[in-house]
Amino acid sequence: MRTSKSGGEYNGAALYSFLLGLGHSEALVQKVLRDAGVDRIDPTRWYDINLAMDIYFAIYEKIGRGALIAVGKKMIETAPFPPGLDDAKSLLLGLDAAYRMNARAADIGSITCEFDDDHSATLVWTTLGPCPLNIGIMEGCCSRVGAPALVEHGAGGCMDEGGSSCTYLVSF
């Protein structure tokens, strides 16, 4: 797991919506939160970013890759977004800004997005969260505007396996 060394913070609202996305797994959420030393997540406050990542990775370990993708997708499909973000391209382009609204530290990484044409993009993530969650988030961005996407992990390494970044090839 990657960590922030600069003592960053993570928005409780983002973490809360992720836990809501888990839906049926209330017992699992409670166990993971207990293990992390917190009783509940308050959506109005900020948490230590490494604690938030601990929670993401603990849940990833318990529910597996496919389920985590589904949670990430559901989380984005139901999240409130600013007006104007109404197509897949603008949502994908806005991911870096959205990430920075929810995570604040000097070493949180970034999300870059380049469009190859009107229906495909290459995104490079150097963020702290688990890789399948990123895939779910991108799938959710596209599906919430009615453009179901195929998100493929590009060659060149994966952060969950020690790589410095994850490249995703998105076709929508």
Partner: peptide
């Protein structure tokens, strides 16, 4: 040229 593609790697 395309990053992340199998061709590049």
């Amino acid at each position: 040229r395309r990053s992340g593609s199998v061709f590049r790697s």
